[in-house]
Design a protein around this nucleic acid. Sequence first.
RNA 1: GGGGGGUUAGCUCAGUGGGAGAGCUCCUGCCUUACAAGCAGGCUGUCGUGGGUUCAAAUCCCUCACCCCCCA
Length: 886
Amino acid sequence: MKAVELEKSYNPKDFEDRIYADWKDNGCFRPSSEATGKPFTIVMPPPNVTGILHMGHALNNLLQDTLIRYHRMCGRPALWVPGTDHAGIATQNVVERQLKARGLRRQDLGRERFVEETWKVKEKHHAIITKQLEKIGCSCDWSHERFTMDDGLSRAVRESFVSLYERGLIYKGNYLVNYCTHCGTALADDEVEYKNLPGKLYQVRYPHADGSGFITVATTRPETMFGDVAVAVNPADERYRELVGTMVILPLANKPIPIIADSYVDMEFGTGMVKITPAHDPNDWEIGKRHGLEMVNILNPDGTLNENVPEAYRSMDVLTARKAVVKDLEAGMFLIGKKEHNHDVGHCYRCSTVIEPYLSEQWFVSMEQMARKALDAWQDGKLSFYAKRWENTYSHWLGNIRDWCISRQLWWGHRIPVWYCDSCGHMMVERDDPSECMACKSKDIHQDTDVLDTWFSSWLWPFSTLGWPDDTDDLARFFPTSTLVTGYDIIFFWVSRMIMASLEFLDDVPFSDIYITGLVRDKMGRKMSKSLGNGIDPLEVVDQYGADAMKFTLCYMAAQGQDILIDMESFKLGSRFANKMWNATRFLLMNLEGRKLVELQEDSLQVMDRWMYHQLNEAAAKVATAIESYRFNDAAQTIYDVFWNDFCDWYVEATKHSLFSKDDAQRDRQVSVMLDLLASLMRLMHPFVSFITEEIYQKLPNTTGRVIDAPYPRHSENRSYPEAKAIVDAMQEFVRGIRSLRSELQIPPERKLHVVFRPDSGFVATQFIESHVELISSFIGASDLDIDENHASEVGKTVPVAGLGFEAFVFVRDAIDVDSELKRIESDLVKTEKSLEGTLKKLSNAQFLANAKSEAVDKEKGKQAEFEEKLEKGRKHLALLRTLQE
RNA sequence: GGGGGGUUAGCUCAGUGGGAGAGCUCCUGCCUUACAAGCAGGCUGUCGUGGGUUCAAAUCCCUCACCCCCCA
C-alpha cells in the first residue's frame, strides 16, 4: 500500500460541501429499497419558509439527522421528509414590509397580485432555508420535499376541512376572538402571549339612575366603557345586595345600564364592582352570555373606535381614546382615583401588538371529541414523550381544550373552501370549486375571503406529506412515522393537533415517539433572540468550526429534558474532537507505505487488539442503548471516550512499537488491525460526526463504498474479551502509578528510570508486562524495567508505588523529598482507612447482610479486601520511607 | 391561582438507591515527529435548606428558600 498524505490539520471546508453533494447526487438520503427492516420515518418540523435557520432549528434537525443516520445504518429503510411551512401571518408581514419600503400597501396591489408577489418571495426564501439545511448536513430525502401550499397538501387541507364540516366538527359563528389589529386578523387562543406589564387601575363613578349618588367601578381599560352593558357585583356581597336590579348611568355616553349579580366577581378586587363589556373581554363575554346581555362592539377591525361610541371618540385608536376618556372623566368629576397596577396583557405571537378581544364571525374546529381520542391514545400507551414529563403538558392541555379558531383575515394561505350565493344566501362547503349556486343555480357566488390558520395545514403534515388523501405507497409504507423531534413551545400548536388529525383521518397516531428538545440559550440562560442580539448563527458556526463540530457539540450537550446553554466557544469541544479524529487517521495513513492488508485471524489478535475490540464492542452497546432511549449526550460521550481515551491515548500509543518494528509481518498485521478498528470507529461515530467520518472512511484502503451506507457496529459476544480488559486495566494502573510518581517528584521526561515491578502471585497482567517490557518502559519512561516477584526493596534507593496486585519500586532516591512523600502516603492512608471503616461498618451490620442484595454484599467484601491490601502496602511503604528520614 | 423544571467542582452540565463524574477553566511538567486544537500529571465538592423513608439517599417522599418556564 501507499502512504496517504493528509493535510496537517483538520479543515472541514475542504470536504463538507463536496461530500454533501456526493451523498445527495447518489441518492444516499432515499430510503433503501433493499433494506428489509421496519421503516424508520421522521417528518421534519417544517421551518417557516421565510425564516432564517437559527440555533433551535440546527439542534432539532441535527438530532433528527443523528437518528435517521443511525437507523439507516442499522438496515432500516429510513425516510426523513423535509419541507417548509407557508407561515401565513409571518410571511404576509414580510411581504407587506417589503411593499411598505416601496410606499405600497397590499390593498394597492389587490389580493391576486399580492399573492403572486408572495409566491415570488417564498421561492426566494425557500432556496435560503434549503441551502442552510444542506450546509449543516441534514440527510433528508429532498425528493420527498413538501411545502404546505403544494397542490397535494392543499388538497389535503381542503379534504380535511370539508370532511370535518361534514362530520359537524367545523362551525362558523359570531364569537369573541383574539384579534391583532396590526396583522388585521383573528388568532387562536394559544397564539396569544401574555406579558405582565405595568398599567393603571382607574376608579370611575357611575351615577345611580335615580340620582341618589354614585357607585364606583375599577377598570384598567376605561375606553371600553362605551361597550359596557352592565355592572356586576358578587351575589354574596352584602354591601351591594340592595343595588342589584337598579340602574346606573354610563358617564360620557349617558346610557342607563343595570346592576347585576354574578359570582364571577371578586369581592376583594377593587371596589367589588365590575363593569361588564361582553364584546371586549373574555370573562365579561361569559357573564354576558349567562345573563343574556347585549354585545356592544366598539371597535373597527383596524383597532379604532367605531360608531357605537359617542361621536367625539370615533376613529381614535385605543390608546388615544383611553387618554381622551380619562381626561373627560376627570373633567366631569367621574374619575375618583387611579393607581399603578400590573396586569397580564395579551400580545400577538407574531408581531407583539396588543391583542384586542374582538367580536366577529369566525370558523372554529370543535375540539372536545378529537381531544378525547388523543388523550385515549396516550393513555393506551401509543405515545411516548421524551422526556416523559411533557406528557403532563400534553394531557393537561387536552383535558382543558377550547375550540380552535381557524379563520384568518389574511390573503396568504389556504382560502376557506366555502362559497356563498349572493342571490339566495346558500352556503356551500366544497371539495371542488363550484361554478354556480347548488340551490338556486345562480352564477352569482363568492368564496369566503378568509384563509385558514397555517397550523390547519401543518397538523396534517405527517400524512399529507406522504400523499394523503390518496392511498399512496408512501403512506402504506412509512405511516405512522417513528419519531417526532420538536421543541416544547409547539406541543399545543402542533404536536397535539397532529395527533388529533391523525386519529381523526387515519385512525392511528402519527408517530409513537416524541422527543422534545431543550431550548438553545446563551451562557446566561437567556433565550436567543434578535432583540437581545445574543443569537448564534448556525452558519457562522459551520464557517468557523465546521458542521461536524456543531453537530457533535450539540449532541454532547443535549441531555434529555434540559435546555442547552452555549456560546461560540462551546463548539471548540466538537472541533477538537474532529481534529483528533483527523490526526489519528493521519498518523495511521502515513505509515501505510509498503504495508499490505492481511486477513485477521482470531488468534492473531494480541492483548491490546483484543482490548480495543472489547472497548469498541462495549461502546457499540452503549451507543445503541443511548440512541434508542434518546439520550444523545450519553451516546456522544461514549464515542468521545472510546475514540480519544481508549483508541488514541492507549491503543495507538501501544501499537506504535509494532508499527515501527523491523518485522514486516508484524507491521502488516498491526496496520491491518488498526485499519479495521478505525473503519469500525468511523461507522460507530458517523451519526454524530458525519462529514469527517465519511471523508476518512473513504480514504481507508480497507473500505469500499460510503460510510453513510455501511452497517452500524452492533454489540457482539464474539468481540467481548473480558480477560484482555482485565489485563489492560491492571497495566494501566501500573503505568499511571509510575507516571503520577514521576510527575509528583518532578522528574523530567529525559531522565529514564530504573523500575522494579513486583507482582503478587497470580497478578493478572504479569505475563503481559513481561512480554511487553519495551512498550511499558516507553509508557513510563524507564531505561530498565525488571520484573521480580521476590524483589526485596532496597532501603535508601527506591521509592515504592502500590497498586492492586502489585508493587513497584523506582530508583530515584536522590529525587525525593522524604517528608513530602511521607505526607502523601499518610494522607492516602487516611482516606483508605476511612473507606475501609465505612465498608466494615456495613459488613458488620446484620441488617445490611440480611436486607441488601447479595451483589451489594459481595461488592462490599471486595472493597474490604481492596482497602486492606492498600493499607497493608501503604503502611509497609511508610515504614520503609521512615528509615530514610534519619 | 394551578402545573412543571432547576439548585452537584471556579464555569457549563451528566449522574434516579450501594465506593461523587465529564468538558472547559486553573496549577505543574513536556514542542515524546499524528495532533500545543496536543501529551502526562494534579487541585477543587456541607451534591440548595431542614426533616422523613431505607441496612444504605446526590438519587425516593415531605418542608422551606432562591431561580426559570408554561397555563389561567
